[in-house]
Design a binder for these strands. Structure first.
Lengths: 372, 372
DNA sequence: ATGAAAGCGCTAACAC
DNA sequence: GTGTTAGCGCTTTCAT
């Protein structure tokens, strides 16, 4: 069917290990050994093989190698979306960490869809990658059973708990507590939680962060005003997510942290006449939108209102004013996740269900300078 | 070495096609045929196979399939960095487009390094993916020879020309011309080009955009002031890039478009006392930094100064003020690139060296509203 | 309509 | 030290 258009000369197929062995006058085993740095080999043999490989321009076919050895040299990374900058920054670091270990990364954007998250899990059975780094967002308790298997797996974040695999977590509660404490120290008493969630039916990053906020207020004996806890409007704009919601029975729609939602939440809060002296945002994206909206309404930051947030995206340094934000340890998460996968690859199967926490740190900027 | 911790029962290895065939009482060929929707098959056979597959929970091993069939179902995407938001947005679309065609995407971040770009090319010989979508940034003319091969390849952007493969390009010159014309129509006469490049020794996105700017000015008989063309400072902060520069003989260091560089260029320009009534930025990232700096210096936008840019990142809607920017067709590029790869996969080899252009459109926002 | 057999290119026992 | 052999799990002629 296909008529390859190559040079007029007879099609020279890509050389195999057999060709190399033949040219070098040795067996394929020796070539294989040579390639895997087998130590017990005569220097002359080694040299002959080296030359043959060079002459033929031989390169290992990783497909064949993977079929035989069971390893593909690929790790799958399943994240909600690369357009959520946090995940783009995380993915970049995962790719870098994997490369350092000689691995490639297949990125699966699950597009805010539970179905796609489950698909990325199911894909592991197809064996095209050695392990899965999964950052679930919409999977549910009942989906945990599908994570069973003996392939290397690492789960990120707070969407799921009790997963049968290493689980990398950030100190959401402590980080938000520290951030809230910072605002309290600065004298704020009406701290709005932009993107907070009082719904405790399921644990999520939102509910954990809300918990940190509540604990800090409780410790400082500052009363909680429920009106200051502003959830992300559900399904504001996202079609894909809507589709997914209709698919999952009993699924409670949750909103997505976007700049637009950040603006919207702030606009509505002010419309309702709710006064605040600080905004603690669920993440930087919401904060960016909030800053934009506050600016439009002529609110002075940090004089009238302090704004703090979480994720410490690169962009946080360039907003007006620059944004005080918590770095939750992207670099560490990436490195830790890749290492956990490779440990499992080396160990020949699924790792223990331990939880690994990474460190956080507050980066103070103009929107809420550190207090003395 | 490895002591798998599984159930006490004997380890049941993942079922192969042979197991399915055995259980269904047919040959492996029939199972294979079933899986590839072979039409001439008795309904009863089909059903027996279906049941066997279901009972065993059989899933095809893509490694084996790929070794035999030559297809891996994976496309490699090599881009400079996911932290450059433009590329994150592009990658997201490539992943989505590939998924629609049943393909996965291996993302290689070449980290602003010529060496990594060449590595992603060399990796194709290893056959772990069916094709490469390459967005080169630092490769040079002399590297083009390395792109020879009969694997599917698509090249994006203006870093390279005369590549032996389909090449997807955006209308850089025309887009900048249109953008410049818009500023001229608005009455601007001193338009600074932030991130422009007068160096014509090699064609690059920067030089093309600069060309569009110059052409528009020439057509309008507006004199060019070389002081208004502000290049990105070379190697401002990037270590990785520095390494690479030292490696490539005769390599001319180029700067990277970052928010920081955008701020810096504007700061220096004002320090030098150079007056402008508009800023045409090489891309949104530079523009974001520029807006930040202008804001700090108390410049009113668009009253004192108009600002326009290219890339139309999501963020452009949320800056203060929101940014007029050109959409260069990310969606179309992604779809076109994936299709071009798949055409080559189907055709059995490298496609012809045609150039495909995608469309652009200006999105007018606060930083430079459309003029009547 | 279905099956037998021959590998895809490599690695891993195990001989020698 | 090096070679022989037996597959990894699948697709693909080619018979029947």
């Amino acid at each position: 069917m296909s008529e390859r258009t190559t040079s007029a000369v007879a099609d020279k197929p890509t050389p195999t290990m057999r060709d190399v062995a033949q040219l070098a006058g040795v067996s394929v085993t020796s070539v294989s050994n040579y390639l895997s740095d087998y130590p017990y080999m005569k220097q002359t043999t080694r040299e002959r093989i080296r030359q043959a490989i060079e002459m033929l321009g031989y390169v290992t076919d990783e497909r064949a190698r993977s079929l035989r050895s069971g390893r593909t040299g690929l790790i799958s990374l399943a994240i909600p979306s690369l357009t959520q900058i946090y995940f783009a920054e995380l993915a970049e670091r995962v790719i870098a960490a994997a490369r350092r270990r000689g691995y490639g990364v297949t990125v699966e954007s699950t597009a805010f869809s539970r179905r796609h998250e489950l698909e990325s899990v199911a894909a592991m059975a197809r064996k095209m990658s050695d392990g899965l780094i999964l950052s679930p967002l919409l999977m549910e308790r009942r989906d945990i059973a599908r994570l069973a298997g003996d392939y290397p797996l690492v789960v990120l974040g707070e969407c799921l708990f009790d997963v049968p695999a290493p689980h990398i977590l950030v100190h959401n509660i402590d980080a938000v507590k520290a951030l809230t404490q910072h605002l309290l120290d600065a004298g704020c008493r009406r701290i709005a939680l932009i993107g907070g969630a009082l719904d405790r039916r399921r644990t999520s990053t939102e509910t954990l962060r809300t918990q940190g906020y509540l604990e800090a207020l409780a410790q400082a004996d500052v009363p909680v005003d429920a009106k200051l806890i502003r959830p992300i409007p559900a399904w504001e704009t996202d079609e894909e997510a809507k589709d997914d919601a209709s698919g999952g029975a009993g699924y409670v729609g949750r909103g997505i942290a976007t700049r637009r939602n950040g603006s919207e939440i702030v606009r509505r809060m002010f419309e309702e006449g709710i006064k605040a002296d600080a905004l603690l945002c669920y993440n930087d994206l919401l904060a960016f939108g909030a800053l934009r909206q506050l600016r439009e309404m002529g609110v002075r930051i940090p004089d009238d209102l302090r704004v703090v947030s979480m994720d410490n995206l690169e962009e946080a340094q360039y907003t007006i004013p620059s944004l005080t934000s918590v770095e939750l340890g992207k670099e560490q998460i990436a490195q830790c996740a890749v290492d956990a996968i490779l440990e499992q690859v080396a160990g020949g199967g699924r790792g223990a269900a331990e939880q690994r926490y990474v460190d956080f740190s507050i980066h103070y900027r103009e929107s809420s300078p550190a207090v003395a």
